[in-house]
Design a protein around this nucleic acid. Structure first.
Length: 465
RNA sequence: GGACAGGUGUCCGAGCGGUUGAAGGAGCAGCAUUGGAAAUGCUGUAUACGGGGUAACCUGUAUCGGGAGUUCGAAUCUCCCCCUGUCCGCCA
């Protein structure tokens, strides 16, 4: 959610933000509604002020008269009743006026709020302009010794690669058929060493965050109220993407939503709170099951572990002071974490600076990390896929956008109330990360070497198959 | 799920129809006192939005779990919802 005062003072900043993010939000309509709303509010407040003044002056008098009325009779009684009626007339008039104005307010308020929630956080100044993922800019890439991005898998390794689909089948790591039987399309069952590998990556990532990076691991709800979804900025834009539990339809309480990322639970933690400056930065991580409807992705990545309705993810968030330099420093630190983890797993990757058009409503700067997946991409001449980068991580800076919505504030050194800045980043998302993990570490005989870093979490197993 | 009891400021706690943004206490901050400290005394101690002012600040409105209602006037009365506690039932 953006600052309305800032919107009024710098409307172009937000008009440009909408344009650069290739979104459609009528800023001028919002400005007009805001002005109308404030005009009404001023009238209501003035009337209320008058009302309050009168009721302070007249109220006790009415009370007195009503007291007298009880013991009165005849002319005296009529006189008292008339006086009371005349005293009550003035506030009644104001009351009608307030009711009238509030009707006007009620007429524009829903549209005003809906529009306000839609205004995206403008991209940071140094984010490249672009329309979509094709315009993202590669920052750097890394590969372990012996891997050359310029050559095919076969050229690098001396044998034709199997896809992760073939590998999981070969070693009975994933059972897609039974997953689909139970959950429908885009579901799967992790089995045996597949489940252990999945757990190993997650546990490795959590331990890495806690032990090496000083983050506090948390277990947070994955079923949350709408406020959490709106507060974290996923709603209204991402409403179609979330599973909806319609408890209210069963006559009880409120509806709930399944979260698509641990970010929701982590950021919701301190919603509506006022923190002391010395409590910042907050550094949290969580491992949580993530649920995504994948609405609008029909027919895309239908096979395998890439795009699924349910997965587990280790997520990190930082809530820091409202300082751009500090936020950028945390952003770099988060990416460093990801690089350390991918390097320790021996997975080639590249960093992409996302362009303005690829940003969501809530972020002002986002860097995607894509891991090399040999089994993706078009068929090569040798009958093996040519390989392709696939997104495995994403690190965003949100400025104060999210904390505004969540009403997460802190008192700075001067005692001033400020909205904190927030960042979030994937540490490891599995089973998607199993795709490069299996494909990159496969051997000519189809066996898969378990990276050293994961072996302690695999009961010491060094090789699958 | 059923039956009670509750939800008031940073915290405890009063108020149950009228100058109550809210008594009293604790905490915290400032000042005084002191060689320094404790103790004591005094003062201050919410947030949001709007208006005014360069600013310190002044001013209006709202906020006593949330929403709706009754009333000239609601923290106080009514209804719905949420949450917490206790007992019972069920249960990983």
């Amino acid at each position: 959610m953006i600052d309305l005062k800032d919107l009024r003072e710098n409307p172009d900043k937000y008009r440009n933000g909408v344009r650069d993010k290739c979104m459609q939000v009528d800023i001028d309509r919002l400005l007009a509604l805001d002005e109308a709303r404030r005009a009404i509010l001023t009238r209501v407040e003035n009337a209320r002020s008058e009302q309050n003044k009168i009721s302070k002056e007249v109220g006790p008098r009415i009370g007195q008269l009503k007291g007298k009325l009880k013991g009165a009779a005849g002319d005296e009684k009529d006189r008292l009743e008339m006086e009371i009626a005349s005293l009550e007339a003035k506030p009644a008039e104001l009351k009608a006026l307030v009711a009238e104005e509030e009707r006007h307010l009620g007429a524009i308020e829903p549209e005003f709020k809906a529009l306000w929630l839609q205004v995206p956080q403008p991209p940071a100044a140094d984010v490249p302009r672009g329309k979509g993922s094709d315009d993202n800019v590669e920052i750097r890439r890394w590969a372990p010794a012996g891997w050359d991005f310029g050559r095919t898998f076969a050229e690098n390794r001396g044998f034709k690669p199997r896809t992760h689909l073939e590998l999981v089948k070969l070693h009975h790591l994933v059972d897609f058929e039974r997953g689909v039987k139970m959950g429908g399309t885009r579901h799967y069952v992790l089995a045996g060493l597949g489940m252990r590998l999945h757990q190993a990556v997650l546990r490795y990532a959590v331990d890495f965050m806690a032990d090496k990076r000083g983050f506090t691991p948390m277990g947070v709800p994955v079923i949350v109220k709408e406020e959490c979804m709106v507060g974290t900025g996923f709603f209204p834009a991402g409403r179609e993407q979330a599973y909806h539990i319609e408890e209210s339809k069963r006559g009880s309480g409120h509806d709930m939503y399944l979260t698509g990322t641990g970010e929701v639970g982590l950021m919701g933690l301190h919603a509506e709170e006022i923190l002391q400056a010395d409590q910042l930065p907050l550094k949290y991580c969580t491992v949580s099951t993530c649920f995504r409807r994948e609405a609008g992705a029909a027919g895309k990545d239908t096979a395998g572990l890439y795009r699924i309705h349910q997965f587990d993810k280790v997520e990190q968030v930082v809530v820091c002071k409202a300082d751009e330099a500090e936020s950028r420093a945390w952003h770099r630190q988060m990416l460093e974490t990801v690089e350390m983890i991918l390097q320790s797993l021996g997975l080639p990757y590249r960093l992409l600076q996302c362009c303005t058009g690829d940003l969501g409503v809530k972020n002002e700067d986002m860097i995607d990390v894509e891991s090399w997946m040999p089994g993706r991409g078009e068929m090569g001449k040798d009958g093996a896929p040519t390989g392709e980068f696939g997104e495995t991580h994403s690190a965003s800076r949100l400025g104060d956008f999210q904390c505004r919505r969540l009403n997460l504030r802190y008192k700075d050194e001067h005692g001033k109330m400020r909205f904190a800045y927030a960042l979030n980043n994937t540490v490891a998302a599995s089973p998607r990360i199993l795709i490069p993990l299996l494909e990159m570490h496969q051997q000519a005989d189809g066996s898969v070497v378990v990276p050293e870093a994961l072996r302690p979490y695999m009961g010491g197993i060094a090789k699958i198959g």
